[in-house]
Design a protein around this nucleic acid. Sequence first.
DNA 1: GCTTGACCTTCCAATGATTGGAAGCCCTAT
DNA 2: ATAGGGCTTCCAATCATTGGAAGGTCAAGC
Lengths: 145, 145
Amino acid sequence: MNIGEAAKHSGVSAKMIRYYEQTGLIPSAGRTASGYRTYTGTDVQMLRFIRRARDLGFQVEAIGELLALWRDRGRHSADVKQLAEAQIAGLRRKIVEMQSMVATLDHLAQGCSGDDRPDCPILADLEGEASLVAPACHSGPGFNR
Amino acid sequence: MNIGEAAKHSGVSAKMIRYYEQTGLIPSAGRTASGYRTYTGTDVQMLRFIRRARDLGFQVEAIGELLALWRDRGRHSADVKQLAEAQIAGLRRKIVEMQSMVATLDHLAQGCSGDDRPDCPILADLEGEASLVAPACHSGPGFNR
DNA sequence: GCTTGACCTTCCAATGATTGGAAGCCCTAT
DNA sequence: ATAGGGCTTCCAATCATTGGAAGGTCAAGC
C-alpha cells in the first residue's frame, strides 16, 4: 500500500504521514525499488492510533509516549492513565479559561445595544474601564480626547 | 516613553509591540533622533486595549477590526457587538469540542485500573476498538497476570 | 572623559501542526 | 508512446510569540 492509500485508510494526510516520519514519531516506512513509501496493515493501524489520539487533543509529544506504551507489552496501565489524566487536566484548564472569556464577553455584549449608535460597553471595557459592571459613572475622568 | 516602559505599562512585551507595528496592527511609533521608538499615553492606552482584547481570545485580525471601530466615532455598536458575538460563538464551539474530548477521556480513564497491569481501555480505544462504551465484555478479559 | 550596564535597534530563527506549491520521477491505462 | 495521476524532495507560509546575536545609545559612577 502506498502513502495515498494509507492516508485514506487512516485519516491522516500523506503530508502528515511524511512529517511524522521525519520527526521520528513513526519509524521510517519501507520503500519500493523506485523510492515509494510502502505501508502495511499494521502501519495503518498505528496511523489510526495517532489520529484518534490527535482527535482527543493530545499533542504529538504525548502521542509519542502513548505509542511507546502501546508497543510495550509490559507497560503499566497506570502510566497510560497518568497521560490521559494530564490531558484531561490540561483540557479542563483551557475550558475554564475560555468559559471565563465567554462570561465576560457575554456580559459585555448583553449590555451593548447593537444598533447604529456608537456607544458600546464592549469597547469601553477594552479601553480600560475600571470595572466590568459599569458603576454609576462618576462625572467622568474629565478628559475626553 | 520608550518601548520598555510602554511594555511595562501596557502589559504587552516590547517584542510584541514591534511585531504589531511591523504587521500594521498599530501605526509606526515616533522616533527619537537616535532611532528609539517613543510612546505617548494614548499609545499605551491602545496597547492596553490590544492586550485586553487578546486576553479575551480575539485573534489579531479581529483586534484590528476592534481598533478600527474604537477609533471610529461614527461606528455602529452593532458592528462591535457582532464581532463580540462571533468571538463568543467561536469560543463556545471550541469549548464544546474540548468538553467532548474530556468526556471521552474521562470515561476511558475511569475504566482503566491504573496499576501495574498492562490492560488498558484507553489504549484499546485508541487502537480502534469499536465502541467507547465497552459492551458487556464477552466472558471478561479473563487474564490478569 | 571613560567605562559599565541596561536599554534600544534590526535581523534571523524557532516553536507546533498543518497546508501549499514547485520541480521532477514513476506507474498505469489507453 | 503519451497523458494523467501519484509519488518524491525541498522550501515556504500560517499564527502569535519568544529567543538570540550583533551593534548602537543612554545614564550613572568613578
